[in-house]
Design a protein around this nucleic acid. Structure first.
Lengths: 218, 218
DNA sequence: AAATATTTTTAGTCTTATCTAAATATTAGA
DNA sequence: TCTAATATTTAGATAAGACTAAAAATATTT
């Protein structure tokens, strides 16, 4: 088993690897974790010793498959707990992150297996992010931004790009959540704004909104 | 907020206070927590500084009302999570303790309020122990040992005295759980053994079993 | 390519929670 | 009550994970 600090580092590096698609720098990790670069260096040594990542001085790090699996498992737990909080305890999707940050470190294979089953083996969390399976594999989906849709196209909301509280609350107010069907009624090329249909309501959204909402079309 | 170690000390002292009905000694705490007495002394200083307990060198400790409230809240969380694990995730009551030991430290008032509601505001955990309310008050019940009942008396199983895995599994096999109604059909004064009725089944139980099962009669 | 700026590492310190070994109180026995 | 046994505390050390300040490596500019 790995410590809380170790798990958090692995998770941060996992996400950063996907963003940078290559070695992750000490500074990037420090910024993401809100710690100092010197603390990161220490931890990279330790994680490299444990074969969870490869590290060469001044060169940044890359997760090993063991490290990636471990990170994915923490993320799996985080997202399953988020589903639980929203679906079973009626939390809003913009208030579950911090609680899931704590729950994700609870150690029990059996607990997660049973929780997964209890929730009906969900594939996505309340923000639309995919939930890795037991082996750390994620179901990659063809999602695009709402702003990429053209007039008359339809999409199912599957996630958000930004997840600030302000934005999530806006979506809540407009009754847009994961699974909501959205139809583009009009699109203004000048400023990228749109008129969309959600349920029985039709309303205007700015380009900024459309660029932060992922939808799946098929 | 208090650290994990602090919460665990408070919890242990809370239980020990109830057992000894007075000051709790350094050695007793050390034994319960599986640490050394010197570590306990250090922590008692710290908790006394924080006004969670009163401590005089060589005299043992007593929780302050703040300390007692904090301890009760941790126990409340532990027991609510145990109910969740058994009722919702179908765990057996003999395998939930260690997982609840981890879950009890998750910090979120709102989470516990919602969990409590989700579970139907239970008064007892799967072992029959009372769940403190938000203010740390416990519903004390008039429970007695099954061995104290006489022939023809009935009782509702509300808890166990010993909670070893062997014992809990025995109860499981006999379909005895919290809420199960038990009737004493016969009692042998020579060895304290009994014949009891549980549901449609009648069977023999030894004195040792009867002395470890709490029932409520009324 | 040298000079400067940036990034990363090293060295040494701090805090929390633990430990061992030694010293000191308290309690119990004769 | 004096001594022996037991309980508790003190002093000093350790490991994890963080920090600051300074040194070293790498990148960027001119």
């Amino acid at each position: 088993m790995y410590s809380l600090a170790e798990e958090n580092y692995l998770k941060a590096i996992y996400h950063l690897e996907q963003e940078t698609k290559g070695e992750v720098s000490t500074n990037a990790i420090a910024e993401r974790m809100a710690t100092k670069p010197s603390s990161v260096t220490d931890m990279m040594r330790k994680l490299a010793d444990k074969k969870l990542l490869s590290y060469k001085r001044y060169k940044g790090v890359l997760l090993t498959s063991e490290g990636r699996k471990t990170a994915a498992n923490v993320i799996r737990k985080h997202r399953l707990w988020e589903v639980f909080l929203v679906e079973k305890l009626d939390f809003h999707w913009d208030e579950v992150h911090e609680i899931a940050e704590q729950l994700e470190h609870v150690q029990s294979e059996k607990l997660i297996a049973k929780l997964d089953q209890f929730l009906g083996n969900p594939d996505f969390d309340p923000h639309g992010d995919p939930i890795p399976d037991q082996h750390g594999n994620v179901k990659r989906t063809e999602k695009k931004l709402l702003s990429e849709l053209d007039k008359k196209q339809r999409g199912v909301c599957v996630g958000v790009k930004e997840s600030s509280s302000d934005f999530l609350q806006y979506l809540d107010k407009k009754k847009i959540t994961i699974g909501t069907k959205v139809t583009v009624l009009g699109k203004e090329f000048f400023d990228g704004s749109m008129v969309i249909q959600v349920g029985r309501d039709q309303f205007f959204i700015s380009k900024k909104i459309a660029e932060n909402l992922y939808v799946q079309t098929n």
